[in-house]
Computed example of a mutant assay.
Amino acid sequence: MIQEYGIGWGTLALINAGIAQGKNRSGFNWFLLSLLLGPIATFILVLVEKRSEI
């Protein structure tokens, strides 16, 4: 059961990295943050606005 939990958590971190890159943010940083915060990081990503390209 622990293994499935870890796989799901890691998958969520990868999804969050993709969402972050879509919002012009660092995918790697959000991946690491998502490993620590999990679903909370997803919620934060939903709330932040897309960063404008310079």
Results as ranks from 00 to 15, higher is better:
G38L: 10
I40E: 03
Q3Y: 07
I44Q: 10
G6Y: 09
I7F: 01
A41L: 05
N29C: 11
G22N: 10
L37M: 12
L35A: 15
S34N: 09
I44C: 12
A17L: 08
L14A: 14
L32A: 15
A17M: 11
L36N: 08
Y5P: 04
F43L: 14
I40C: 05
S34E: 08
L37T: 12
L35Y: 14
A20R: 04
G10Q: 08
F28H: 08
L45I: 05
L14E: 12
L14C: 13
F28S: 11
G10S: 12
V48W: 12
V46P: 02
W9D: 07
I2N: 03
Y5N: 01
F43P: 00
A13Y: 13
G8H: 05
Y5S: 04
A17F: 00
A41V: 00
K50N: 08
K23I: 03
L12T: 07
E53R: 00
A17V: 01
R25E: 11
Q3T: 04
I7W: 00
A41R: 01
N16A: 06
I7S: 01
I7M: 03
L33V: 14
L35I: 15
N29H: 11
L47H: 00
A20D: 01
W30T: 10
I44E: 04
L35R: 12
E4G: 02
I19C: 02
E4P: 06
I54Q: 13
L33S: 10
G38K: 06
L12E: 08
L36I: 15
L14M: 15
R25W: 08
F43G: 13
L47R: 13
A41G: 01
I44L: 15
I15A: 11
N16V: 00
E53P: 00
K23C: 02
F43T: 12
V48G: 07
L36M: 15
E49N: 12
K50I: 11
F43A: 14
G6C: 11
Y5D: 09
A17S: 08
I15G: 00
A17P: 00
I40D: 02
L33W: 10
F31P: 02
E53G: 03
A13P: 11
G10E: 07
L12H: 02
S26F: 03
W30I: 04
R51A: 09
G38E: 02
R25I: 08
G6T: 09
W9K: 15
G18Q: 14
K23H: 02
L32T: 14
N16Y: 01
L33M: 14
L47I: 15
G38F: 07
T42L: 07
F28I: 15
Y5G: 00
L37P: 05
K50Y: 06
W30D: 09
R25C: 03
E4W: 01
R25P: 05
V46Y: 13
N24Q: 10
K23S: 02
E49F: 05
Q21R: 15
I7D: 04
N29M: 14
K23W: 08
K23E: 04
L37R: 07
L47V: 14
L37Q: 05
F28V: 14
L45G: 01
S34F: 03
G8M: 06
L33E: 04
L12I: 07
G8A: 03
F28P: 04
S26G: 04
K50C: 05
I19Q: 09
T42M: 04
E53I: 14
G27Q: 09
V46N: 12
N24F: 10
Q21W: 11
I19P: 06
A20K: 06
E53Q: 07
